[in-house]
Computed example of a mutant assay.
Amino acid sequence: MDIREIQNLIKFVAKSGATEVKLEMDDFKITIKTTMEGSAPEATYVQHIPVAQAMPQAPAAPAQSAPATPSAPAAPAGGNDDTSKYVTIKSPIIGTLYRKPSPDKAPFVEVGTSISKGDVVCVIEAMKLFNEIESEVSGKIVKVLVDDSSPVEFDQPLFLVDPS
Rank of each mutant, 00 (worst) to 15 (best):
residue 75 A to T: 12
residue 91 S to Y: 04
residue 98 Y to V: 01
residue 83 T to V: 15
residue 63 A to F: 15
residue 74 A to E: 08
residue 99 R to I: 10
residue 84 S to N: 03
residue 59 P to L: 09
residue 60 A to S: 09
residue 64 Q to A: 04
residue 79 G to Q: 01
residue 88 T to M: 13
residue 84 S to G: 11
residue 93 I to Q: 08
residue 79 G to D: 14
residue 67 P to H: 12
residue 86 Y to C: 09
residue 104 D to I: 12
residue 69 T to I: 10
residue 80 N to Y: 15
residue 101 P to E: 07
residue 59 P to H: 07
residue 107 P to V: 04
residue 78 G to W: 00
residue 71 S to L: 03
residue 76 P to I: 11
residue 65 S to F: 09
residue 94 I to W: 14
residue 88 T to Q: 10
residue 72 A to K: 00
residue 85 K to H: 09
residue 101 P to L: 09
residue 71 S to P: 05
residue 72 A to L: 08
residue 57 Q to L: 08
residue 100 K to Y: 06
residue 80 N to D: 13
residue 83 T to D: 13
residue 104 D to T: 08
residue 100 K to W: 02
residue 78 G to H: 00
residue 62 P to K: 01
residue 105 K to R: 15
residue 59 P to C: 02
residue 59 P to V: 08
residue 62 P to E: 00
residue 61 A to H: 03
residue 105 K to D: 13
residue 100 K to H: 08
residue 102 S to E: 05
residue 90 K to M: 12
residue 90 K to D: 08
residue 94 I to D: 07
residue 101 P to Y: 10
residue 56 P to E: 02
residue 57 Q to A: 13
residue 86 Y to G: 03
residue 106 A to V: 01
residue 91 S to R: 06
residue 92 P to Y: 09
residue 99 R to L: 15
residue 57 Q to D: 07
residue 88 T to H: 08
residue 81 D to Y: 09
residue 98 Y to H: 15
residue 97 L to V: 14
residue 74 A to I: 12
residue 103 P to C: 06
residue 94 I to Q: 07
residue 92 P to M: 07
residue 62 P to Y: 00
residue 59 P to W: 09
residue 100 K to A: 06
residue 64 Q to G: 01
residue 104 D to F: 06
residue 66 A to C: 00
residue 67 P to N: 10
residue 56 P to H: 02
residue 59 P to S: 10
residue 103 P to Y: 02
residue 86 Y to I: 05
residue 94 I to P: 03
residue 97 L to H: 01
residue 76 P to W: 07
residue 67 P to G: 05
residue 97 L to Q: 04
residue 61 A to D: 07
residue 96 T to I: 13
residue 88 T to L: 11
residue 96 T to C: 04
residue 62 P to C: 01
residue 102 S to H: 05
residue 63 A to E: 00
residue 102 S to A: 10
residue 99 R to T: 14
residue 96 T to K: 04
residue 80 N to W: 05
residue 70 P to F: 02
residue 106 A to H: 02
residue 74 A to W: 02
residue 69 T to G: 12
residue 68 A to M: 09
residue 66 A to F: 06
residue 103 P to H: 08
residue 106 A to C: 09
residue 56 P to G: 00
residue 87 V to P: 03
residue 107 P to E: 12
residue 100 K to F: 07
residue 80 N to P: 05
residue 100 K to G: 01
residue 105 K to C: 14
residue 83 T to A: 11
residue 74 A to P: 09
residue 77 A to M: 10
residue 88 T to A: 14
residue 56 P to W: 02
residue 65 S to D: 03
residue 96 T to H: 05
residue 56 P to V: 03
residue 74 A to R: 04
residue 63 A to I: 11
residue 99 R to W: 13
residue 78 G to Y: 02
residue 65 S to G: 04
residue 64 Q to S: 09
residue 65 S to M: 11
residue 73 P to Y: 15
residue 67 P to I: 06
residue 100 K to P: 09
residue 77 A to Q: 06
residue 90 K to S: 11
residue 60 A to C: 01
residue 73 P to I: 07
residue 105 K to W: 01
residue 69 T to E: 15
residue 57 Q to N: 07
residue 73 P to K: 04
residue 59 P to Q: 11
residue 73 P to H: 08
residue 68 A to Y: 14
residue 98 Y to M: 10
residue 59 P to K: 01
residue 105 K to Y: 11
residue 77 A to D: 04
residue 100 K to S: 07
residue 92 P to W: 12
residue 90 K to F: 02
residue 99 R to M: 15
residue 97 L to P: 12
residue 99 R to N: 01
